[in-house]
Design a protein around this nucleic acid. Sequence first.
DNA 1: CCGCCCGGTAACCGGATTTTCACAAGCCCG
DNA 2: CGGGCTTGTGAAAATCCGGTTACCGGGCGG
Lengths: 271, 271
Amino acid sequence: MSSTTGTLRVAVIDRDGAFLKVLGNRLDAAGWQHRILGGLVPVEELVAMKINAIVLDMSVLPPEEAWPFLERVCGMLPGLGVIVCTNESTVAQRVRGLRLGADDWVGKPCHPEEVMARIEAVVRRRRRQSGGREERGPLVVGELEIRADQYQAFVSGRSGDLTRREFELLQALADAQGSVIERGEIYRRVWGYEMAHGDRSVDVFIRKLRIKLEQLSPSWSYIHTHFGIGYRFDPEPVDPSAEAAPSAAAVDAGEDAEATTVERELEPTDA
Amino acid sequence: MSSTTGTLRVAVIDRDGAFLKVLGNRLDAAGWQHRILGGLVPVEELVAMKINAIVLDMSVLPPEEAWPFLERVCGMLPGLGVIVCTNESTVAQRVRGLRLGADDWVGKPCHPEEVMARIEAVVRRRRRQSGGREERGPLVVGELEIRADQYQAFVSGRSGDLTRREFELLQALADAQGSVIERGEIYRRVWGYEMAHGDRSVDVFIRKLRIKLEQLSPSWSYIHTHFGIGYRFDPEPVDPSAEAAPSAAAVDAGEDAEATTVERELEPTDA
DNA sequence: CCGCCCGGTAACCGGATTTTCACAAGCCCG
DNA sequence: CGGGCTTGTGAAAATCCGGTTACCGGGCGG
């Protein structure tokens, strides 16, 4: 379950040193990003933080501000998971908090692991209902537009006709923005399990993808090979002068001009 | 806040008479429909009940069945709010339950009002993203008019004679406006629970729907297949010329010739 | 009790996609 | 400059997928 959660961004509004310390450690251990806030924070700041959830101790807020703050937060950030984690409380207070929009209410003292499990539960539910993918705006790199909601890449509205695997591969590469990924890692991310020794699937799909990307956007080069390591995704304009002459020689040596991608402007050179 | 909740359907699996009585009263008072279940219930039955949330006392289940049951319920009904409400429990148990998919875990004794507030909180998370469109006006796409209040689609007043499932499928597709939806997601939205591996129901109903939509509005194409992924709903006028004269298509291929792969062996054809 | 409607399942088929192979081409290092 | 290992290529072989049709069984109204 937790594996599906991925990395979360959490804000904690509290002042209880011991609790903060131990919770902080756990959050770090889980790889979640977190930020401690000492008290009342403008809601706009929370918005800017792009967090998935907030853990709030009502008692650190000035009493007359606590409820309005909770209401404001829940109202302004409907997608945010709100877990109130506070000392003793009455049923009425808990009901009030939950009705105001809090997602959960835990009494202190509480185990940080449970707090995290509750955060997960809250975020999980929120994500599920959104159908999994929604806030993933189209990613634009070079001339390419990668649209997760379409499982497809486009250039000026033109579809790349990528198959599912090709698209997932593209996405995995693009997600790494600029860094080299090893084959094994690519395989794990796209295929979902460990690559068998000697499997060339990644290479083959890299090729298919390159072909389709070049058809789509011939003046850019997107996938770069790192010998002995893997591949790197990085859009860069291709330099036309460099390859015009040499490539022409290589190509016309063979016979299969049409089989591969395109008849470029290698023509001009010798024609 | 509670005003937005509307009427909910809740199942309670418990045997604590006093608790059931007082909770039942509150549920009635709130106008929520509820059903008391004495113990282990086949998940299929829960599916058929179309409930929004379930309140579960783990201790009424045989100990070796409790966790698997919780897991099964959460796995099969991802949209269902699951509130575990049980006697004493350890942190580890609560964490386990929450990680297994439970949305909340309350210890007994607890105030029924709080249980209800927690149900609301859980269900609220669920509805938020889905847009809570109750008063969905007739949706018009292409020639089609989708009327939720009639469970039916029309073209210039003529009914499509869609069955309930067909209509729900259409609606689910249309709600996604333009995005590709995976089969599993479609199934989840229309059937309400997790699709079993190898289930072809979606495909078959897509076909039935396509047939009826085509009868209704032959000059439009609404449902598009995305191989290996799912379907996309997007009304577009069908191109009559395309199929009328296939030979013509080949000739005028000039426009998108390079868009698709097209390894054209230019010479063989007429040479 | 009969038949029809509707949802759901099984199976077949053709086409799309993925995997696997064999070999050519490249890169690195000594 | 040559060998050894890595990557690019092309295509065949193996799978996977979706379209379609037939059929089964429950619910319902006559």
